[in-house]
Design a protein around this nucleic acid. Structure first.
Lengths: 213, 213
DNA sequence: ATTATCTATAGATCTATAGATAATGC
DNA sequence: ATTATCTATAGATCTATAGATAATGC
């Protein structure tokens, strides 16, 4: 009770962290403050020493979740390609994104895919948070596209992002099933192959690596 | 009070209808039974003469919403093309789907795009409802693809559906904005043009019809 | 006589607040 | 002395149930 070694700032950060995971897993309205506090072994009454309202937590948790997703995207796109002379690993990112592990791991996965469906029902402030991060994601993906397609790379990035979000959402909506795996596998394959986008970078046998159904 | 001319079956049907619209607009958990009954000028106590539980209403409303979306899709794909010798109007469907009117009209729009984000948080029964309708949508879109691509038409349909759902979801998530309109316009254009999918059917100037931002 | 709808309420859950408790820092 | 956390509770809202009311059909 009282002051533990965990400072106020630490508890605040842990709350935002836990909220980000639970919101992605169960939806922005899918967890109560009492249950969230319980997850941190705290009681619900203490919540308001850290936030003025639930909405304030939502804003902070969403900001964290969206920023993290963007960072992970950039890492997968650009860090994975270091050392072999290429500038990006687009196919590596696609493999990472359209995956059964990602499908089943909403709490640790992409915040846009997990929460975009909730956004239209929320405030314009929430929608602005999505807008700003999605702009960054478009920029990142656009940079990662092969240079020869640079003329309309923003358009390509927009379409590819739509496809990635849509495929993951669909794979999740239908539950674990052959269809779910087929969506992931097929879209992964066709995005990687399409238009010869990435032929230089990924040997064909790796693109066609079998996925067990 | 008492028996109105509206028979029990009629009230039941109106409840399912209203629920389908509200669920698509605000989410499956986004409206209370009391508010739903109020929309029909009824009081909340009467609800349980029509349904054993809220979940039963959810199942029926979702079934209606998903089936309607599928019917609309088939109509747009196949009825719009009658008379000119072609078998489908894929570009017409894409124009209809990726549209500001559809973006802003969730209550009357596609149930998959409106509710797929809720599905992973719901029961496996709900997910099975999505799975069955999405299978039908894949079949419809697959049939509507130009015959020369028939060899892998299911794969193409899967990718195109992912892109359509993802683009509409993204356009909604970012709120009304230049980005939202850009997503709709760009994906619409690139899906219509891509791979010469539909060149025979749609004159180029119509494909490039300007959208005001 | 039947029964769709209404009135009233139980029980659960949720956000938010008020005041008590106790661990830490000065 | 300060304040993070806890205990207790107010007030709102939600699903579900019980019994009353009144319009329809036989």
């Amino acid at each position: 009770m009282g002051y533990s070694k965990a400072s106020k700032a630490n508890t605040h950060a842990r709350l935002v962290e836990a909220a980000a995971a639970r919101f992605k897993e169960r939806g922005i309205d899918g967890i109560s403050l009492a249950d969230l506090m319980k997850e941190l072994k705290l009681t619900h009454g203490g919540f308001y020493r850290h936030f003025d309202s639930r909405d304030e937590l939502v804003a902070e948790a969403l900001a964290l979740a969206l920023a993290r997703s963007g960072e992970t995207m950039r890492e997968r796109l650009f860090d994975g390609a270091k050392g072999d002379g290429t500038q990006s690993d687009l196919a590596g990112f696609i493999d990472f994104y359209l995956n059964e592990a990602h499908r089943d791991g909403r709490a640790g996965g992409c915040a846009v895919a997990a929460l975009a469906g909730d956004a239209p029902r929320k405030s314009v402030q929430v929608q602005a948070q999505f807008r700003e991060q999605i702009e960054r994601n478009i920029a990142a993906l656009s940079e990662a596209l092969p240079p020869n397609t640079a003329a309309d790379s923003r358009e390509q990035a927009l379409v590819m992002l739509s496809t990635l979000y849509g495929a993951l959402t669909m794979a999740r909506a239908v539950g674990d099933s052959p269809l779910s795996r087929e969506v992931l596998r097929t879209v992964r394959k066709r995005l990687t192959d399409a238009g010869g986008l990435n032929k230089k970078r990924r040997p064909r046998k790796k693109e066609l690596a079998p996925i067990r159904d």
